[in-house]
Design a protein around this nucleic acid. Structure first.
Length: 897
RNA sequence: GGGGGUAUAGCUCAGCUGGUUAGAGCGCUUGCAUCACACGCAAGAUGUCGUCGGUUCGAAUCCGACUACUCCCACCA
């Protein structure tokens, strides 16, 4: 056992224990049939990312759950890993290459991937080290990366299986195209932004009726060059006669048909819609219905191509829009421009408006949609908070095929090969197409598809691909049967579609057994989003995103963890500031000093078990305060059990805080001070302190793993070579067996003593005597209360700063106050300020009178008396009697003045 | 357009299934270097519980409407 320094310095302690935990294999999960399995897979962070406050919240919760599971005797594993973050990483590496005056294209695919791997290996893995700083107790021996060979095998296997079953197909479709990253995106990767734009009203001349015009509205005049029709609603009396006729597209000047289509909303705009099948999803569909020509006027980077005409060629979308408007003006075709707010889809990564684009892509028709809905609806998978179920179901109800191909190189290359030399590839002809996890045997005769898979099309397999799937040996070695399905998933609701829903479908599709065995997890805890104190999302550009590592350096990981958890109610966004962490840091310090105080109060004896500690207790020496603090610890333990079941983490921190700070330190340790000088009680008191500290360290451990481990050992609770993480946090049963039980009466007595002390101190403060250590008090109390006062006289005197507390009736000329143990009088040698005293007591009297009136009114209310439960009525009556007694006392005091 | 969420002390939030005087942390006021802790101790001040209705003997709590902020989903050009 070591000397404890005055202020807690986290960094040494944290580094020391983390290294030890890892060295001793504390975090390694092993299949153990005699134990209940508990498993979590980490939401894999971007391999080249750095730790954000979001990660801190997320991973602290996971660490709390996994540590608690270990304490509860489960065989627990937390599987860590990272994902390759296709588009994000590709973009970063390309930027580096540009700096070197080269490009991905110039390097070619092979060399580019080499460079990307180098870059990943150099900059990757930082976040893993940062998670360790936070205390994350992942099984690092099982670190997984989505581009690992065996993980890649899982990804390709899934692709092949789905392809063979017809879930995956290739097709030319309208997709979301990112003109910056030059790749297709899924619908989920498009962020809709409200944007102030313009609504342009223009007119096209009707070819068959020269001089007559059709008015059309658009937000995108730069697509005029791709128009191949104008549509009106066939029921629209204004325009029905025009259907089948033509109008003049102004540039490049051409005759285009006026068609009728029910899609057109007669009440919107002018009721006439220009149709650009190549650049708008709705227009594309209309085009399909009417066999319209498709004119793609843009290059992949969304600049105009030659089909847009010589004036436009090479212009970007903004420039093209300006030019188009100018041309309309010159031609006298522009009627007006209105301000218009509308939604524009942005590329998540590129942060530019996406361009609807027709291209050949791979799509996945989701498997097991109905089963995925059912799993959540029937409670096989539980969402916390429950309300996210609605969002989940709604998405599944409206699900559309997933565009899984990306035109980038960093990722899993699509495992499809096309026969060389075939002029027109028929996707249904096995002579033309090969799909397999491994390349075809005569690879030289085939050419592999250039695209790679969406990163989410690899991470949706995470819960089982991290456990060896699809390789039987690996699955055995990694104990998939034992650890799958995982127990809890902790993630942000922002990836409920990207990840959570898809994992559920993947589990149901690829795993064996009944649905309860196939689902990837049993509970999903959705965290809130961490924001700054103004409620803004944390972002690099705002500079409002604190660096968790700096915070850890300043306050310690335990402080950060506690601070974050303390302000993270279930499912609510979190407004974070450093002050939160100060609370946690201060709490560490308080705990540290309480243990220090314990060590200074007396030699530590054998603390190695509850039984050993309890054996030092002389039951006859236990007083109300001892029993009360033990009772409070037991109640706290029971309450947090329930909180864990409901994932109420902030409630747990609040209970722990209030038990330790208020009940244990502010009261029990203070009370102990006077009893420690009583040799006959000393050993008992110290043993009770040890019991409480032991229980508290155990309860706190999942939230503050480092300091609790340190103190667990320095207080002698643990032996060398064992760890607090394996100690059961429950102590009430064993205590009960040893004859120490929760005691409600003791709790009540202590409440009264606390009230007495607080009131006595207030009385002193009123007379500016807060520092007087030898005040004289009198107490007027009934027999029972008088006995309590006398019994606890020593500690009351110490805590009140009193030389004496005498039981005395009918005291006059003394300022007085009411307490739970009767009236307290402060003996003033100086004459008292009777005016001030009258005023003070008068105020109190008024308050009491108000309460009495209120209670009287209630009791006089026939409806109340006849309808309220008897218990409530009795309570009100007892309350009234108390108020009245107090009032009488006050009146007596007033008349004595 | 559809669906969530939030509104309680100066600030950030607890307050679950309705029942004594609505709580915590920070901040504020006053006092304190008392031998665990000033990252501390003690005593205090501060609330039309968003607005309006309803249910009830009784509402911060349940129901409805409204207002404000906020998030998600949705191809009206």
């Amino acid at each position: 056992m070591s000397e404890i320094s005055k202020a807690y310095t986290p960094s040494e302690v944290e580094n020391k224990w983390y290294a030890k935990w890892v060295a001793e294999g504390c975090f390694e999960g092993r299949a153990d049939a005699s134990k209940e399995a508990y498993s979590i897979v980490i939401p894999p962070p971007n391999v080249t990312g750095v730790l954000t406050m979001g990660h801190v919240l997320n991973n602290t919760i996971q660490d709390i759950l996994i540590r608690r599971a270990r304490q509860m005797g489960k065989s627990a594993i937390w599987i860590p890993g990272t994902d390759h973050a296709g588009v994000a990483t590709q973009t970063k590496v390309e930027k580096v290459l540009r700096g070197e005056g080269t490009s991905a294209r110039k390097l070619g695919r092979e060399k580019f991937i080499e460079r990307a791997k180098d870059w990943r290996d150099k900059h990757g893995g930082i976040i893993i080290e940062q998670l360790k700083k936070l205390g994350a107790s992942c099984d690092w021996s099982r670190l997984v990366h989505t581009l690992d060979d065996d993980y890649s095998e899982a990804v390709l296997t899934a692709f092949v299986k789905l392809y063979k079953q017809g879930y995956i197909y290739r097709g030319k479709r309208m997709v979301n195209w990112c003109p910056v990253n030059l790749t297709a995106l899924s619908d989920e990767e498009v962020i809709m932004k409200r944007e102030a734009g313009k609504f342009y009203k223009m007119k096209y001349e009707i070819a068959e009726e020269p001089g007559k015009f059709l008015e059309i509205c658009t937000t995108r005049p730069e697509t005029i060059m791709g128009d191949t029709a104008v549509a009106v609603n066939p029921d629209d009396e204004r325009y029905a006669h025009l259907i089948g006729k033509h109008c003049w597209r102004p540039f490049p000047r051409a005759k285009i048909e006026i068609i009728g289509d029910k899609y057109v909303d007669m009440s919107f705009g002018t009721g006439a819609l220009k149709i650009t099948p190549a650049h708008d999803p709705a227009d594309f569909e209309i085009g399909q219905r009417h066999n319209l020509e498709i004119i793609d006027i843009m290059n992949p980077d969304a600049t105009m191509n030659e089909l847009a005409g010589v004036d436009f060629k090479g212009l970007n979308r903004d420039e093209a829009r300006k030019l188009a408007v100018q041309k309309l003006k010159e031609l006298g075709l522009l009627i007006e421009i209105q301000d218009y707010e509308h939604n524009v889809g942005y590329s998540e990564r590129g942060d530019v408006p996406i361009e609807p684009r027709l291209s050949d892509q791979w799509f996945l028709k989701y498997p097991k949609i109905e089963e995925a809905k059912k799993a959540v609806e029937t409670g096989l998978i539980k969402f916390w908070p429950k309300r996210w179920e609605k969002t989940y179901i709604h998405w599944l109800d409206n699900i559309r095929d997933w565009c899984i191909s990306r035109q980038i190189w960093w990722g899993h290359r699509i495992p499809v090969w096309y026969k060389k030399g075939v002029e027109k590839i028929d996707l249904n002809n096995p002579e033309h197409v090969y799909v397999g996890v491994n390349p075809p045997k005569d690879a030289e005769n085939w050419v592999q598809d250039e695209d790679s898979l969406d990163t989410w099309a690899s991470s949706w397999l995470w819960p089982f691909a991290t456990m060896g799937w699809p390789n039987e040996d690996a699955m055995d070695k990694k104990s998939l049967k034992y650890f799958y399905p995982t127990s809890d998933l902790v993630t942000g609701p922002d990836i409920i579609f990207f990840w959570v829903a898809r994992m559920i479908m993947a589990g149901l599709e690829f795993m064996d057994g009944d649905d309860a065995q196939k689902i990837p997890f049993k509970n999903v805890y959705f965290t809130g989003i961490i924001r700054d104190m103004q409620g803004r999302k944390m972002s690099k550009s705002l500079g409002n995103s604190p660096d968790p590592l700096e915070i850890i350096a300043k306050y310690g990981a335990d402080g950060l963890r506690f601070g974050v958890m303390n302000c993270a109610p279930q499912g609510q966004d979190i407004l974070f500031s450093e002050e939160r962490v100060q609370l946690g840091r201060n709490f560490c310090n308080k705990l540290w000093n309480a243990c220090r105080f314990r060590q200074m109060s007396g030699e530590l004896s054998d603390n190695s078990s509850i039984e050993k500690i309890a054996s030092r207790i002389d039951v006859s020496k236990l007083d109300a305060d001892d029993l009360a603090v033990i009772t409070s610890a037991i109640e706290t333990s029971k309450a947090i059990d329930k909180d864990y079941e409901e994932y109420q983490f902030n409630s747990i921190t609040q209970r722990l805080y209030s038990f330790f700070w208020t009940d244990f330190c502010d009261w029990y340790l203070e009370v102990s001070k006077s009893r420690l000088s009583d040799e006959s009680a000393k050993q008992t008191v110290l043993a009770v302190q040890d019991l409480c500290l032991r229980a508290f360290l155990l309860m706190l451990h999942p939230f503050m793993p480092f300091i609790t481990e340190e103190l667990w050992h320095s207080m002698g609770f643990g032996k060398d070579g064992d760890f607090i993480q394996n100690q059961n946090p429950h102590f009430e049963e064993e205590l009960s067996r040893l004859g120490i039980k929760a005691d409600a009466a003791a709790l009540n007595t202590t409440q009264n003593l606390r009230d007495f002390v607080s009131k006595a101190r207030a009385l002193k403060a009123q007379y500016k005597l807060a520092n007087k250590r030898d005040a004289k008090f009198y107490a007027a109390a009934d027999a029972e209360n008088a006995a309590a006062i006398l019994q606890n006289a020593e500690k009351l005197k110490k805590l009140c700063g009193a030389a004496s507390i005498e039981i005395k009736e009918n005291v006059s000329d003394c300022p007085a106050t009411l307490s739970a143990l009767g009236t307290i009088y402060l003996d003033l040698s100086d004459s008292i300020d009777s005016e001030a005293e009258k005023k003070r007591l008068g105020k109190e009297k008024e308050k009491l009178q108000g309460l009495i009136n209120g209670t009287n009114a209630r009791l006089a209310n026939q409806a109340f008396v006849s309808k309220a439960p008897a218990k409530v009525i009795e309570g009100a009556k007892a309350q009234l009697a108390q108020y009245q007694a107090k009032l009488a006392e006050i009146e007596k005091l007033l008349s004595n003045l």
